[in-house]
Amino acid sequence: MLELRLVQGSILKKVLESIKDLVNDANFDFSSSGLTLQSMDSSHIALVALLLKSEGFEHYRCDRNTSMGMNLGNMSKMLKCAGNDDILTIKGDDVSDTVTFMFTSDLVREIFFYKIADFEMKLMDIDNEHLGIPEAEYHAIVKMPSAEFARICKVLASIGDTGDIGTANIVLRQNTTVDKPEDATVIEMNEPVSMTFALRYMNTFTKATPLSNTVTISLSPDLPVVVKYKIAEMGYVRFYLTPKMEE
């Protein structure tokens, strides 16, 4: 028996929008501590790791560890049927090969338009390869406004990486003299680090911008970069990307 209720159903919608362009099919792993997902893109150079802790759900019942394979494109289509203010309930069981998403509008504010919609989606068998990602010390950790990071990635990608139209150089300095803490740029540097990454992937990661006002980018020369979007009170979406290096 699996039953989860998320008052802010829009969180799962945003999670799906942030990962569906990177990964087509993925296993959602449910345990008593929460919902996790780990999946690589088809070229195996980028990885997404999701955590939604059980405490972040209004109701969370998971009698035994369950893994559900879902097509993220189809799941996104179903979640798009939910209003942004809808409460989302996910239901599953051990015998059927389907998962049910139920959307209910807020009873208090929409008392005259009370609505329940449910969508049943077929599950699939996915042979998911898991990677063990150890905790690591990073040379540099940058915490900055997520919208600013998205803008920088977009601008650089539009200029391109061939040098045909010229070059772009963006310097981001630490800035903590801001009214709101989420507007700060904080650079923790233990050692200088210089790395090259595929902007196409970075741009895909920035689809997670609506999930968090800030993003944390952790860099070490011998490790994939980690781009982390914290989901308030619930967990995170983390993206890993291998660096481009001289062969």
């Binding site: 690589m40 195996h44 150079i45 980028a46 990885l47 390869e129 898991h130 990677l131 063990g132 990602i133 150890p134 090259t196 595929a198 011998d222 490790l223 994939p224 890993y240 291998t242 660096p243 481009k244 290096m245 001289e246 062969e247």
Partner: peptide, 14 residues
């Protein structure tokens, strides 16, 4: 040129 390695060369597969 610049090349990208598989994630498996950084993290352990299981």
């Amino acid at each position: 040129g610049l090349e990208q390695s598989d994630l498996g060369s950084y993290f352990m597969r299981f």
